[in-house]
């Protein structure tokens, strides 16, 4: 398919003069983005890994004979075997079941915090930047206030009050303290984007401010937001680990990758499966999220040549 020719390959030559197949209806943005995304093998790999990890985290426990908090008194600190796939802990818990349970928690917490905090940041930053005036002042006041509050302490103080409540509250707390800096960056970018001629053009054609924000401003910051989201996912998993380590985050008997890594650290040399298995899953997960984010950014950014170069190559192959 010769829809997108590479500019870089032929500077000066008009790509538009090149032959293009006739098509009945022109593709919309979402379809083009999907097509460009699928061209990036790394990104597709990242997406597949994330999906597989999710499936594994939720289906794994169903096929495993052991529950995550169910000790096997016949096997303490056993290495991986047919009975216990990832081995057992010192009180006989099945590591596979624990890792799967931990993955469930960490994946969900990480992704939710990443998505929520980036969305809040984009929304608040864009509103403040676009409207200016008192909207800007109020929102930025909130941002400054949240920035000076020590998030770790507050979560630590609040978590006993939430004991027994849903862990979703924990997600909300983590997200509430991780969006402010991004919101400030977004606001700054909005201030420059607002003066772009295409934003003015949209305003002069009668487009409503909210639509301008969602159609023109936020998509043009997509690279920033996606990178921010992937970083936040990693950071959220890490804060979750830290808080869990001190006993504030995920509470026992429930486990997360963070608590598992924390307890496994002591025995990294003697009983490596206790540390390397949960840590390996953490690394795999963060890596996959980053690959996915990279690919999505390139797909959304038409000036990125990487997605396009592939296009020229695959074109040549197909022709």
């Amino acid at each position: 398919m010769a829809t997108i020719t590479s500019d870089a390959a032929a500077p000066g030559a008009s790509p538009v003069d090149g032959g293009a197949p006739k098509r009945e209806r022109s593709a919309t943005r979402s379809r083009l983005v999907l097509r460009r995304f699928l061209r990036r093998k790394g990104a597709v790999f990242g997406l597949i890994v994330v999906v597989l990890l999710y499936l594994m985290a939720f289906l794994g426990p169903l096929i495993s004979p052991w529950g995550y908090a169910e000790p096997d008194y016949t096997a303490f600190l056993q290495p991986p075997s047919a009975e216990h796939w990832f081995g057992t802990t010192k009180i006989g818990e099945d590591v596979f079941a624990q890792v799967m349970r931990g993955l469930q928690k960490s994946l969900t917490i990480g992704l939710l915090v990443g998505v929520i905090s980036t969305s809040v940041a984009a929304l608040v930053g864009a509103l403040a930047g676009y409207f200016g005036g008192w909207v800007d002042r109020t929102l930025m006041w909130v941002v400054d206030l949240l920035l000076v509050l020590p998030s770790f302490l507050i979560i630590a103080v609040l978590s006993p009050a939430f004991k027994g409540e849903s862990w979703l509250l924990f997600v909300a707390l983590l997200a509430a303290f991780s969006w402010m800096i991004t919101a400030r960056i977004v606001r700054g970018m909005t201030l420059t984007l607002r003066e772009r001629e295409y934003v003015k053009a949209a305003r002069f054609m009668g487009q409503s401010p909210l639509r301008i924000i969602f159609k023109h401003i936020v998509p043009n910051m997509a690279s920033l937001l996606i990178i921010d989201a992937t970083i936040t996912i990693g950071a959220a998993v890490l804060s979750e680990t830290g808080l869990s380590f001190f006993g504030f985050g995920v509470q026992p008997p429930d486990v997360s990758l963070g608590t598992l890594i924390a307890t496994g650290t002591d025995s990294v040399i003697t009983y490596p499966w206790l540390f390397y298995l949960p840590a390996g899953f953490l690394v795999l997960f963060v890596l996959a999220v980053n690959l996915f984010g990279d690919g999505l950014r390139d797909a959304l950014d038409p000036s990125s040549t990487r997605a396009r170069k592939r296009a020229t190559k695959s074109e040549e192959e197909s022709e």
Binding site: S26, E197, Y198, K215, P219, N220
Partner: peptide, 11 residues
């Protein structure tokens, strides 16, 4: 600058 770089011409 007058055309949103993120949108295809049809949009």
């Amino acid at each position: 600058a007058a055309l949103d770089p993120r949108m295809p011409i049809s949009d």
